[in-house]
Nucleic acid binder design. Structure first.
Length: 589
RNA sequence: GGGCCUGUAGCCUAGACUGGAUAGGGCGACAGCCUCCUAAGCUGUAGAUCGCGGGUUCGAAUCCCGCCAGGUCCGCCA
């Protein structure tokens, strides 16, 4: 599965190598690699600003070796490059050699490639590598809230992008069924009368049960005896006592069902739930402890064991990483180590999506994994919290906006918009369907389009702005394309690249041709927001084409037929890219 | 006190890891575009000491050092 631009790039690279060796016989491909610090020559091909060509080769790095100005080097190189199948012309601008790809060739082969591959266009060849992406992993003590809403959405976008990049992907939710949070919930459900527990207006099991958690938590803080009882639950499950584990399981199962339902509402499906207790029950945590105890970094303090992390660059007061309590029970991080060892055995690549509050713990786990000679370490994507204008959210203090509320609000506001714009044309059920696609799409897009490490202060007005760089802009471009196609009876797609000469047409096709490069880029750098940016650019170029190039009035000429084909392939690419972010592509809005 | 992350126009954001072509977008503001495929669109104008101060370099938003502000962590919690 290769794409037109792959071929073009390959040809440019070999032309470049050829030119360089002609110019300076001593400079072999290996020595450029050295100059570039081990980089392949592929990586130095950049995308120039608009209208300056399709690929650019900067010559700065050759300047000190050749003792010539980069500008002159660029000129020398350009002179040695002849037009070929893919290279239409070469220009220099300052220190850059700019390559212009033969646009006729690119137009024809891109359109052909999209029509052939359809919903698989952009996807990269199968890599035969398994990747486990762990995300969400929320405490099952209550509904998901927006503070951590980034986690499932970023995680799921990665799942989709990695699938497109040719990996076998499995998403996992690490289920904390042994911690204090679920113990509190368990105690609450077994000891409190539902009459004394505040009811939620949401008829979902996670919402219905969170009151028990909150009430129990309050009592625990006041009453030492209750705290002890809860502590007992924790202790028993950590000792692997089946009866207690079952009791806890019964308590959180309904909450988890509710969480799962919420995830489903935003198009997210988890492949596997992995309970922490599994690693206690199958004794793999015990093995971790025994091995860690044998390392030279292990020390004992009052019967508890820790690793001294000072030699690993962990500074300050955090150098003691306790992995075994004096009562012989394990800690969350210890069990996490066992989990990661297990994952490493079942995959070629591990990705975790975690809140930035887990940075230290994650580092500690990583060091332990290295000490245990674990072959595959996880790549961890940290995200900053979503906060409210007044401060941080907390389930404990009930100062929180739940994900479900956010979803409802998104859909409701989207509905108001649809009604305002199309209320007199569309049926109620149609508007509802559109509102759902727009509302949920907005939620996902707004989270994905921002770099995960930036703090987000959540404001309704901004989250639900439906104009400009927002999801309706993209969905609208898709709907426009569908609208044109719905007015064409002929299913046959004809295309003559010679007819499409308008600047907007050429730019749109070039944008479509780049899609596979963006999938490559987004997956290899673990950055879903790259796809969001691509979508915006693509929709924008489609809208410009829409403005400049009438389709239906030309439908009986070759130009018109080629334009219809272009509309269709643009529609396919928009759809595929939206799919990567888990956003629906409405045919009408 | 220490570690990590963030700081780009009134607001939001791309670019930073891999230093280079006039720092891209969007919202809001202002001025235009529907006898023509859905105006959730398009075009234009104004708006940036790239947090501050040093340094490295032919060249710094990008690398280094110091400072300031915000987030986050520093439990035998999870």
């Amino acid at each position: 599965m290769t794409y037109p631009l792959d071929e073009a790039r390959k040809e440019i690279l070999s032309a470049l190598e050829n030119a360089l060796s002609q110019l300076h016989i001593g400079l072999t491909p290996r020595s450029y690699k050295k100059l570039l610090g081990g980089e392949e020559l592929t990586k130095v091909l950049e995308s120039p600003p608009e209208n300056m060509g399709d690929f650019a080769f900067p010559c700065f790095f050759l300047s000190p070796v050749l003792k010539k100005s980069p500008k002159d080097i660029a000129k020398d190189i350009a002179k040695k490059i002849e037009p070929s199948k893919w290279i239409e012309k070469v220009e220099t601008k300052g220190a850059y050699v700019n390559f212009f790809i033969d646009s006729k060739n690119l137009k024809t082969s891109t359109v052909k490639s999209i029509l052939e591959k359809q919903e698989k266009y952009g996807y990269l060849p199968k890599k035969n590598k398994k990747v486990i992406i762990e995300h969400t992993s929320a405490n099952p003590n209550g509904p998901l809230h927006v503070g951590r809403a980034r986690n499932p959405i970023i995680g799921d976008a990665l799942v989709r992008i990695f699938k497109a990049a040719g990996y076998d992907v499995e998403s996992q939710f690490y289920l904390d069924d042994m911690g204090k949070q679920v113990a509190i919930l368990t105690w609450g459900l077994n000891n409190l009368d539902s009459k004394n527990v505040p009811k939620s207006e949401y008829d979902k099991p996670d919402h219905q049960n969170v009151g028990f958690y909150q009430a129990a938590n309050e009592l625990m803080e006041k009453d030492g005896k209750i705290a002890e009882e809860i502590g007992e639950i924790v202790k028993r499950s950590e000792h692997g006592e089946s009866k207690t584990i079952e009791l806890v399981h019964k308590a959180y199962a309904l909450v988890l069902e509710g969480i799962n339902e919420s995830l489903g509402r935003v198009n997210i499906q988890i492949d596997k739930y992995i309970p922490e207790s599994m690693f206690v029950r199958n004794k793999s945590v015990e093995q971790v402890i025994n091995k860690l105890k044998k390392t030279k970094y292990c020390h004992e303090e009052d019967g508890a064991f820790y690793l001294d992390l000072d030699p690993f660059g962990i500074k300050g007061r955090n150098t003691k990483f306790f992995f075994l309590r004096k009562d012989g029970t394990t800690l969350y991080a210890t069990r996490d180590i066992a989990y990661h060892q297990w994952k490493a055995k079942h995959a070629d690549l591990l990705i975790n999506v975690l809140g930035e509050d887990h940075k230290l713990e994650s580092k500690q786990v990583e060091i332990a994994l290295k000490l245990l000679d674990t072959k595959i370490l996880p790549w961890v994507l940290f995200y900053a919290f979503v906060s409210l204008p007044g401060g941080k959210m907390s389930t404990r203090r009930a100062r929180v906006v739940y994900l479900d509320e956010l979803i409802d609000e998104c859909i409701e506001r989207a509905y108001m918009e649809v009604e305002k714009r199309r209320g007199n044309e569309l049926s109620e059920s149609k508007m509802k369907r559109i509102a759902e696609m727009v509302g949920i799409g907005s939620l996902r897009y707004n989270i994905i389009k921002v770099q995960p490490e930036k703090d987000i202060v959540f404001k309704w007005e901004e989250a639900l702005n439906f104009e400009g760089n927002a999801v309706p802009f993209i969905q609208y471009a898709h709907a426009r394309a569908c609208s044109i196609l719905s007015k064409i009876k002929d299913e046959k797609r004809e295309f003559d690249s010679n007819t499409l000469t308008h600047d907007s047409e050429v730019k749109l096709i070039k944008q479509l041709a780049r899609f596979p490069l963006f999938i490559e880029d987004a997956s290899s750098s673990y950055k879903p927001h790259i796809i969001a940016n691509y979508l915006y650019e693509t929709a924008s170029k489609f809208n410009q084409f829409y403005r400049d190039c009438p389709v239906l009035s030309e439908k009986n000429t070759m130009l018109g037929k080629s334009r219809i084909t272009l509309v269709d392939v643009a529609r396919i690419v928009l759809d595929n890219a939206l799919q990567l972010l888990g956003i629906s592509a409405p045919e009408e809005m």
